[in-house]
Design a protein around this nucleic acid. Sequence first.
RNA 1: GUCCCUAUCGUCUAGAGGCCUAGGACACAUCCCUUUCACGGAUGAGACACGGGUUCGACUCCCGUUGGGGACGCCA
Length: 484
Amino acid sequence: MASPVRVRFAPSPTGYLHVGGARTALYNYLFAKKHGGHFILRIEDTDQERSTEESLHMQIGDLQWLGLNWDEGVDPQTLKSKGDYGPYRQSERLDIYKKYCDQLLDEGRAYFDFRTDEELEAIKKAGDKFVRIPRPDSIPTAEDGRKRIAAGERAAVRFKVDGGKDHVIEDLVRGEVRLPEDMVGDFVILRSSGMPVYNFCCAIDDALMKITHVFRAEEHLSNTLRQKMIYEALGFETPRFGHLSLILGKDKQKLSKRHGATSCHQYKELGYLPEALNNFIALLGWSSPKGDEYLTPEALLEQFSIDRLNPSGAVFDDEKFKWLNATHLRALPHQELWKRLKPWLDRENIVLPEDEAWVDRALEIFKTKMETLADGVELFRPIDMKFFKIEEDAKEVLDWEDSNKVFTAWREQVQGMTTDYMTGDEFAEAQNKVKDAAGVKGKHLFMPIRVAIIGKAHGADLKMLVPLITKESLLERLDKVEAR
RNA sequence: GUCCCUAUCGUCUAGAGGCCUAGGACACAUCCCUUUCACGGAUGAGACACGGGUUCGACUCCCGUUGGGGACGCCA
């Protein structure tokens, strides 16, 4: 009987969640859900210099925004550990690491290294690839080491790598991977400050938390060797590993800050939808068995399987992401789309009618022009009278000799309105009357009208646009255009 | 430099030895729809890095070359 699936996402709280991290979290989440397993959030905050409580909040917020909810780990509200294998913050597990470190020390699998930074630097400069103890007999016994520490000396603890042996892992995405022990030196497991190091904590936690599968980025392949040695030295069973391809920037280098937006938070601020981000990053290294590109969260969960994970790196293409976001946006029910757009409009103090029918009509015409929620702001802005202004591209239209005739005839039609809003059909009729009265047709007819409505020469279909604006507002706009 | 990973259109990818005249998506071009701009529809251009094997037969398997990436921290 196979043990229940337990996977984890283990970010270090240093800034917002990176899209690469988000994809790792997504795959782990999907894998857990797919197998009725547990998805665990563990916080790797052993780097006290860089880890902050603020970052932890940011990371948790991003994960929640993406809807990647975890079954065990740090509680999103209280930040306290929740689950049977806690605590889930490495900074709260120090005594556990200490215990295992002592065990390795006592068994001679690890040793104290009293060399100073300067000495190590010199060894490196001298060209020694790895920082090994040059003379094995100079390694202090665990007992001596502890005495010297007690006497006030400082030492890091290093794991002793025998070397020579090849480790083979059956990687879930790459197949058989051979890792020679000689590719790593005696690595530090406990800093001289007493704080344990990532590779050590990670191995112990994965073992103690009964993690069965580890999906993480390819950059961890060499760490896998270190962790495997720790597992073996401590008698733990190793989980299965799956190393994901890296997400690259346009220049094919690992995606980083200099490539522009790289964090989930930035994309959220740019007006992207979480379901679109999940969809897009899922496709960077995985493909739908049905060949689908647009995948709802439900479809993603239904179709996901690790056998379609791709081992080669993938470039993050903003263009395609934008298209996918637009697709998700347009698929949203109007009520839902409005709910998401509202905060953007509120932030800009754009005030619009709120009744469902109006919103429905407005979204119907504007959503085809919206790729992100942010686009909605500029689309809706001119509908709020206080933001009405004549755009640059409209100036030329105003100079056409027929435009004034059109304005006059248009004013007459608007003044004749007996209701607050014109319907599309009423507008078509009114437009015909303007055509006859002004003796103008084609773009010389409708462009001036559009300018008199939104201040722009191009935009949504007038038949759709006019019914969004009240008679009073239409007249006011006309006043401004004529008074320009 | 050493080790590890990787290699199909510009980009994301499908392809598990004959189904491939290599399929789809984004982007691009043209056309249609449209009295604007979009949406939508149609069509088109566009790739198996190279060299050796293995095989009756390689995009698919093996080896090498080259390219790309990653790791070589008391970061994670």
